[in-house]
């Protein structure tokens, strides 16, 4: 029989999953630091630093990276670090605006289709299918081509081609939620269709939709760059990242790598950082992890 005296001293505790947790924490911290740095740079540099990113200085054109120009200069002698920060500002604006618009459209369509079901669902989902059947870069090019180059046509083009996946995700989520007993309980408690949608369904899908929105920001930035690179996006005088890379094509062939590399890194690094953050967030909203107590 087991009748040893009860241990009174504090026992030796052992932890689990510590290494996994610490690498994850490092990844999250690096991602947070990068995103914060980018956002701060984009917000603070233009008002605080009184340098003209458009200042042409032909005497110092295409200088390689140095202390006075950390990213080097472009073919008109403009400082590339400054141009990258301004380019990031434009690209981020386009990315955030497009991602938000796309998410709002997608969430609305998905939630309505899922919550109403029947004809509304079938009709809306056919619209989604129709949009998805066209390659979205092609559709995006078609949309921007209808307008004069500018920020808003690019936003509209990216938004209108990217709400589809959000709509599908939100609809699937709403459909699965609709069958839960807690919705039954709400109906039995006298809740109206509208109240169930607003009080129970929408709050449940918002974290998913917000996650989709965050992941879409870098995606939208890539699209802006792609459109600008093709000469269809932003007007060439605006220093967007896509325009910077597009403008550097000539010098790359001549062996000057820095006007291409640094704007390129400015696209890749935020993408990785946001993906890292979104991964951590996804784990947070995963309901299985919520109940850490296993009660």
């Amino acid at each position: 029989m087991t009748c040893e005296p009860t241990a009174t001293a504090d026992p030796a505790w052992r932890s689990y999953g510590a290494s996994r947790r610490s690498t994850r924490a490092v990844r999250v911290r690096v991602s947070v630091a990068l995103v914060a740095a980018i956002v701060l740079a984009v917000l603070l540099v233009p008002p605080l630093v009184h340098l003209d990113q458009q200042a042409v200085d032909l005497s110092s054109k295409l200088l390689p990276p140095s202390w006075s120009h950390p990213f080097g200069t472009d073919d008109l002698g403009r400082d590339l670090l400054l141009r990258c920060v301004y380019g990031m500002r434009v690209s981020l604006l386009v990315g955030v605006a497009a991602a938000l618009t796309a998410t709002v459209i997608g969430t609305a369509v998905g939630a309505i289709a899922g919550a109403l079901g029947g004809w509304a669902d079938r009709g809306l989902m056919r619209v989604v299918d129709t949009f998805s059947s066209v390659p979205h870069l092609l559709l995006g090019i078609f949309l921007v081509a209808m307008f004069r180059p500018g920020v808003w046509p690019v936003v509209v083009s990216v938004a209108l081609t990217h709400w589809l996946s959000t709509a599908r995700i939100v609809r699937a989520e709403v459909l699965s939620l609709r069958a839960r007993p807690y919705i039954d309980a709400a109906v039995s408690g006298g809740a109206s269709r509208w109240r169930v949608a607003v009080r129970h369904l929408l709050p449940a899908v918002l974290p998913q939709a917000a996650l989709a929105a965050v992941l879409m920001v870098p995606h939208a930035m890539w699209h802006e760059s792609a459109l600008s690179f093709l000469g269809l996006g932003l007007p060439t005088h605006m220093a967007s990242l896509g325009n910077l890379i597009q403008g550097a094509r000539g010098s790359l062939l001549a062996g000057q790598w820095w006007p291409t590399l640094f704007p390129g890194l400015f696209i890749v690094i935020p993408t990785l950082a946001i993906a890292g953050l979104a991964g951590a967030w996804r784990e947070r909203i995963n309901p299985r992890r919520r109940s850490e107590l296993m009660l």
């Binding site: 839960r180 007993p181 309980a185 709400a186 039995s188 009080r199 129970h200 709050p203 449940a204």
Partner: peptide, 15 residues
């Protein structure tokens, strides 16, 4: 009519 279901976890809005 008041209803109580079998699985309390699924019968409650987790928020």
């Amino acid at each position: 009519i008041g209803v109580v279901f079998q699985q309390p976890r699924l019968s409650c809005d987790p928020r």
